[in-house]
Simulated scan of single mutants.
Amino acid sequence: MIPAAVFASGSGSNAEAIVEESHLPCTIELLVCDKPAAPVISRAKHWNIEVFVCDPKTFPNKQAYEQAILTKLREKQIEWIFLAGYMRLIGPTLLEAYPERILNIHPSLLPAFAGKDAIGQALTAGVKVSGVTIHFVDAGMDTGSIIAQEAVRVLETDTNQTLHQRIQAIEHRLYPETIRYILTERERNDSNATSVDQRIR
Rank of each mutant, 00 (worst) to 15 (best):
A37K: 11
A37I: 05
P39D: 09
V40A: 03
V40Q: 02
I41F: 00
I41R: 00
R43H: 12
H46F: 04
H46C: 03
N48I: 04
N48P: 00
E50Q: 13
V51C: 12
F52V: 04
F52D: 10
V53G: 00
V53M: 01
V53Y: 00
V53S: 02
C54H: 01
C54Y: 03
P56V: 14
K57H: 12
K57Y: 07
T58V: 09
P60E: 13
N61F: 09
N61E: 15
N61G: 12
K62P: 00
Q63V: 15
Q63W: 00
A64P: 02
A64G: 03
A64K: 11
E66G: 06
Q67H: 07
Q67A: 13
Q67T: 15
A68N: 06
I69L: 12
L70G: 03
L70Q: 04
L70S: 06
T71D: 14
T71V: 14
K72Y: 09
K72C: 14
L73Q: 05
R74N: 15
R74E: 15
R74D: 15
R74K: 14
R74W: 05
K76A: 13
K76D: 09
K76M: 13
K76E: 14
K76W: 07
Q77I: 00
Q77R: 12
Q77V: 03
I78P: 00
I78Q: 02
E79R: 07
I81N: 01
F82V: 13
L83V: 09
A84N: 07
A84R: 03
G85D: 13
G85L: 09
M87I: 14
M87R: 08
R88A: 11
R88W: 09
L89G: 08
I90K: 00
I90M: 06
G91A: 05
P92W: 01
T93C: 08
T93Q: 01
L94M: 04
L95S: 05
L95K: 03
E96C: 01
A97W: 02
A97L: 03
P99N: 07
E100M: 07
R101C: 01
R101T: 03
R101E: 04
R101D: 04
R101Y: 02
I102Q: 02
I102A: 05
I102R: 02
L103I: 06
L103A: 06
H106T: 11
P107A: 12
S108Q: 08
S108D: 10
S108M: 06
L109P: 06
L109W: 10
L110V: 10
L110Y: 08
P111L: 12
P111F: 12
A112W: 09
F113C: 10
F113R: 05
F113E: 10
A114N: 10
A114D: 08
G115F: 08
G115Y: 06
G115N: 08
K116P: 05
D117A: 13
A118M: 11
I119N: 05
G120T: 15
Q121H: 13
Q121V: 12
L123S: 10
L123I: 13
T124H: 14
A125Y: 15
G126N: 14
V127A: 10
K128T: 14
V129L: 09
S130T: 15
G131L: 11
G131P: 09
V132K: 02
V132T: 11
I134V: 15
I134T: 10
H135D: 10
H135N: 12
F136L: 14
F136Q: 07
F136E: 10
F136W: 15
V137G: 05
V137Q: 06
